[in-house]
């Protein structure tokens, strides 16, 4: 039951993009096609899950015992940056086809604040390891859901005649606002 609450909470109620405002840059920047949205989601799920596990273990077995938790921000960002590089290298060797699909998105992920955000949120919420993994995967899926719906809407938007000032980013932001309003309907579900 606890896990179901975490999953629904992360995907719908507190959607990482539309409610927590994390990962807005790839949300606005990448998502003009549904297929790119799916690729980005795959890469984010992969890195977010591994990054959360590694930062969780480092927090519990290195930072806390040594009483240097104030180094959290520096440690986490270095781990994430190194991890993204490693994932890229390993993926290239082990699974060239997966690398083909996710490759272009990987470098962008280091500066995706959703990854660092989830790693810190896990510690703030005092989850255990399994809860953390569930939380990370559901947040990545929530990111993917928002991204795919949004890119679908934007594909249609190209056909609409808009006032000059509204074209591009302003219109995207308004659409994101309406989407966020729709997701508010899930409030109180958990």
């Amino acid at each position: 039951m606890e896990y179901i609450i975490i999953v629904f909470g992360a995907i719908f109620v507190n959607n990482i993009v539309l409610n927590q405002f994390l990962g807005i840059c790839p949300f606005l920047g990448v998502s003009s096609k549904v297929s790119t949205g799916l690729g980005m989601t795959g890469a984010v799920t992969f890195v977010m899950t591994i990054a959360t596990i590694v930062t969780y273990l480092i927090q519990q077995y290195v930072l806390v015992p040594l009483e240097i938790t104030y180094l959290q921000t520096i440690t986490y960002i270095l781990i994430i940056a190194a991890l993204v590089q490693m994932v890229e290298i390993i993926l290239k060797k082990v699974s060239p086809s997966l690398y083909q699909a996710l490759g272009v998105f990987l470098p962008l992920i280091t500066t995706n604040c959703a990854i660092l955000g989830v790693a810190i949120l896990v510690i703030q919420n005092e989850f255990n390891l399994i809860e953390s993994v569930v939380f990370a995967i559901s947040n990545a899926l929530g990111f993917g859901l928002a991204l795919v719906i949004f890119s679908g809407l934007r594909e249609h938007m190209d056909l609409i005649d808009l006032p000059k000032g509204m074209k591009g980013v302003p219109a995207s932001l308004v659409i994101a606002g309406l989407l966020s309003m729709a997701f508010m309907g899930f409030a109180g579900l958990v």
Binding site: F21, G165, P170, V174, L178, M181, M184
Partner: peptide, 19 residues
Amino acid sequence: ILPPGAFLALGFLIAFINH
């Protein structure tokens, strides 16, 4: 004040500046 307002307000603000 709620999350959707952030997207809407910024969207219209940028549209206004563009205009």
